[in-house]
C-alpha cells in the first residue's frame, strides 16, 4: 500500500465518501425514495441529487482555487450548505 502514498486528509475524504454511500444505502433500505421534481430542471432521486451535489461541489472548489485566494475551507462550508439545499429542495 506504500505506493499509494496515503495522507490523512485524503484518507478522511475517502472514508467520508464511503460512509455517505453506506448511509445512503441504509436510508434507501429503511425508507425507499421516490423520484420527485424540485428546483432542478429534471426529476431526481436522492442518489441523483447526491451525485449532482458532489460533482458541483468539486467544481466549486476548483473555481475557488483557480479564481480566488480565499481559504479553501470557505468553499467547503459553502458546498456543505449547497448540498443541504440540494438534498432538501432539489
Amino acid at each position: 500500500m506504500a505506493w499509494m502514498s496515503w495522507t490523512l486528509p485524503t484518507a478522511l475524504f475517502f472514508t467520508g465518501i464511503a460512509v455517505i454511500l453506506v448511509g445512503m444505502t441504509a436510508w434507501q433500505i429503511i425508507s425507499p425514495c421516490v423520484e420527485r421534481r424540485g428546483f432542478l430542471p429534471l426529476a431526481t432521486t436522492r442518489g441523483d441529487r447526491l451525485f449532482i451535489g458532489l460533482l458541483s461541489s468539486a467544481f466549486i472548489h476548483l473555481a475557488f482555487v483557480a479564481l480566488t485566494d480565499v481559504n479553501i475551507a470557505v468553499a467547503t462550508v459553502l458546498c456543505v450548505l449547497w448540498m443541504i439545499i440540494l438534498m432538501r429542495w432539489g
Binding site: 505506493w3 499509494m4 502514498s5 496515503w6 495522507t7 479553501i72
Partner: peptide, 27 residues
C-alpha cells in the same frame, strides 16, 4: 483514482520522501 487523489496533494520525490502541499498543485 484514489492514488491520483493522493498524489495530487503531495510533492513526491520517492515513496518515502513526500510532503503534503494541500491545493498548491491545483492552483
Amino acid at each position: 483514482l484514489m492514488t491520483v487523489v493522493n498524489y495530487s496533494v503531495q510533492d513526491i520525490f520517492d515513496p518515502y520522501t513526500r510532503y503534503f502541499v494541500g491545493t498548491e498543485w491545483f492552483e
